[in-house]
Structures are given as C-alpha cells and as structure tokens.
Amino acid sequence: MLEIVNLHASIDDNVILNGINLKVNLGEVHAIMGPNGSGKSTLSNVIAGHDGYDIISGDILFDGESVLDFPPEKRAHLGLFLSFQYPIEIPGVTVSNFIKTALNEIRNARGEEPLAASPMLKMMRDKMKVLEMDKGFLSRSLNEGFSGGEKKRNEIFQMAMLEPKIAILDETDSGLDIDALRIVANGVNSLRSKENTFIIITHYQRLLDYIIPDFVHVLFNGRIVKSGGKELALELEKRGYDWIKKEQE
C-alpha cells in the first residue's frame, strides 16, 4: 500500500531524513517511535506532501505509484490522511462545513457525487457517538478555542468521516489525558480494518497500550534503526532511547 524507498529529505539545507525505508500493507498498524528531533514529524509531513521540505533522493509510493510530484490534496484524494500534531484554527468555518467540504472535495476528485446533507449528517452523528463527542461540536468554528483534547478528537473525527486508506497519526497522544486517550484509541480501533492501515507516530509507548501495533520502528537521526513487534515499544518504555543512541554510536 505505502512504500518509502531510501528517502532523504532536508529543510533549509539541514538533512532530516537520512534514508528511510518502510513498507506498510493494508490491515497493518505500524508505530514509529523515536526521541525528539529524530525526524518523526518531518516524515509525516513529507508523506503528506508539505512543500516546505526538499526531497533529495528516494521515493514514496502509494499502490506502487510515486506520489512525490503530487500536491497534498491529491495525496488525500488517493486516501492519505494525516492527523496533525497541531491542528490549525479556522474561525468562521464550522466543523460540519469543513468536513463536508473536505469529504465532497475528495468525492469529487474520485468522480463521485457529493454526499447529500441528510446522509452526511447521519454519518457525522454516528461517528461522533463513537468518539463520545457532543452534538454542539458540529457548529463550532474549526479548532477555535478547542482544548488540546478536543482538537485531537476532532482530528480523529475527521479521519472517521474521510475514511482514508492510510492514516498517519502524528503525536496524537500528546496533550491528552487518560480518558481522552482511551476515547481516541477506541475511535481508531473501531476504524481498523483489512482495507486500511495506520501509522502511529509517538514519543511514548502509552498510546500503544490501547492501539496495539503489528510493527514498531525506531527512528533515530532520520533513519529507521530498529524494527520489531509490539514488544519493542515496551522495551523502549522500560529502557528509554539512550541504548538506541549508544548502539548507533
């Protein structure tokens, strides 16, 4: 589904990604862990098509097709979703209108008819129930005045509505208390299927108590230096990142 081949990327002449190789298949959940500054957010931004980075070499393939030349919206149309670490506030545009716009843009790009108002609303209500969100949420301005937890829940709500094939969750657990974490994790788990895949980017192991990954990768200095099963996350939790750093030196 998603394949990253020997990817090197830089920002303002600082090389951040140093040869990333990663293959993600449908139905899998991958966790990418790593200390601060290891390149986690850069990796998610580059996959989603942020144009602030220079791709030095390597490739990103969706279903075998290179997407390096595709703008972010086209990647979204192909089924990519990025849950942002810092969602943007957009006053004057309600959550429901924003999601409606995004969903219909994606449908339009795929040659599908826009979804009518009442099935859209029903879908929103169903998804909100899973995420234990209040109905009043829909008419609030997007992310404006949202608490950290509300922003993250709203990201997962958008993900639930847009039904991506590949979802990248960038530090979704940061700023969440334990209840919010559980709700967000339940939301993600309810979406897991054989038709999609999740990449969970996190500094800590605790989200992985709720969303059990199939694979855990450790990112360090812009490279994946270790891969393993879910037990790798537990080991990192216990031992921290220092031993990884030492191994690399």
């Binding site: 703008p71 919206e73 979204a76 843009e105 790009a109």
Partner: peptide, 29 residues
C-alpha cells in the same frame, strides 16, 4: 499562513479553495 494551507490541502481541499477558506476565516471577525 503556509501551515494552515497545508492543513486544508492535506484534507483534500484544492489550493484555490483552501486559500479562499483561509481568507474567509481571516475576514470573519
């Protein structure tokens, strides 16, 4: 704001529409 534009585009919203949305948000007050 480039980051705000990226956020909207990452949701599938085309560049021109994304810019218009941000301008509306800017104008909202």
């Amino acid at each position: 704001d480039e980051d705000a534009l990226f956020y909207l585009r990452a949701r599938g919203i085309r560049l021109k529409e994304a810019k218009a949305l941000l301008m509306l948000a800017f104008a909202n007050d």
